[in-house]
Simulated scan of single mutants.
Amino acid sequence: MSSPLHWLLKAFDVFVVVGMAVISLLIFTNVVLRYGFSSGIPFAVEVSRVVLVWVIFMGSVVALAKGAHLGVDSLVVRLPQKARFACFIVSCGLMLWCYWLIAQGSWALTRIEWGNITPLTGIPVGLTYAAGLVAAVMMALVLLLQLWRSLRGTLPSTWAGAKSDETPLAVSSALSQEKLQ
């Protein structure tokens, strides 16, 4: 991975960890204050909601870059190398199209909602929708980098036919004998 993109993904990793810590601290403190002291932190829910949306979207970018998204590769691993490459190209095209749609929708909602502010914190509501825009652009960059690498001969591990470390489940002979009877 290129150095600036690698640095940015590390920053997203840190943001996800700090964001989850902030959410946990705000919600926990708010619960203790409400039940223990009939008080609370007025802005805790608004801030937690915005931070959670950003954590989810930035975590998705990092997961895509690390190849940690769920995927079903049972068909792809059985294909010959050229067919896997063709499937990867088609898959990249479809994902880029989806990122374009997400970016368009997020940009439109960010512009529409930027003038609206949350009642307690004054945070623009559009900031929540901007997370989708940033994530779509970053995911497209990660995908374009993977596409560039694949065109130069290096497919991601799943598409290259790398086998899983897990051993396939085997049916014991006692169970197969029971079914036959």
Rank of each mutant, 00 (worst) to 15 (best):
W7F: 15
F12M: 14
D13K: 14
V14E: 04
F15T: 14
V16P: 02
V17N: 04
G19T: 12
G19R: 11
M20D: 01
M20N: 12
M20C: 12
M20G: 11
A21F: 10
V22H: 05
I23C: 05
S24V: 12
L25T: 15
L26W: 03
L26I: 05
I27D: 00
T29I: 02
N30T: 05
V31N: 06
V32E: 01
L33Q: 05
L33W: 02
R34W: 00
R34V: 03
Y35C: 05
Y35V: 05
Y35T: 07
G36S: 09
S38V: 08
S38G: 08
P42E: 01
F43D: 01
A44E: 01
V45M: 10
E46L: 07
E46G: 07
V47N: 04
V47E: 00
S48H: 07
S48L: 05
R49N: 09
R49K: 13
V50E: 11
V53F: 08
V55S: 08
M58W: 14
M58G: 05
G59F: 09
G59R: 11
S60W: 11
V61N: 03
L64T: 13
A65M: 05
A65H: 06
G67S: 04
A68M: 05
L70S: 02
G71E: 01
G71I: 03
G71V: 06
G71K: 13
V72R: 04
D73H: 11
D73I: 10
S74M: 07
V77I: 10
R78A: 02
L79R: 07
L79A: 06
L79I: 01
K82Y: 00
K82V: 00
R84V: 01
A86F: 00
A86W: 04
A86D: 00
C87G: 03
I89A: 05
S91K: 02
S91G: 08
S91E: 00
G93K: 11
G93E: 02
L94G: 06
M95E: 01
L96V: 10
L96M: 11
L96N: 08
W97F: 15
W100K: 12
W100H: 14
L101I: 14
L101D: 08
I102E: 02
A103D: 07
G105H: 12
W107K: 13
A108L: 14
L109H: 10
I112E: 13
W114Q: 10
W114R: 13
N116W: 13
N116A: 15
N116L: 14
N116S: 15
I117N: 13
T118A: 15
P119H: 14
L120T: 14
T121K: 06
I123M: 13
I123H: 09
I123D: 08
P124S: 15
V125W: 10
V125N: 12
V125M: 11
A131D: 07
L133G: 14
A136S: 14
V137R: 13
V137G: 07
M138N: 09
M139R: 08
A140Y: 08
A140N: 06
L141P: 03
V142R: 07
L145Y: 06
L147R: 03
L147E: 01
L147H: 03
W148L: 07
W148E: 02
W148M: 05
W148D: 02
L151E: 00
L151C: 04
G153W: 03
G153D: 00
T154P: 01
T154D: 04
T154E: 04
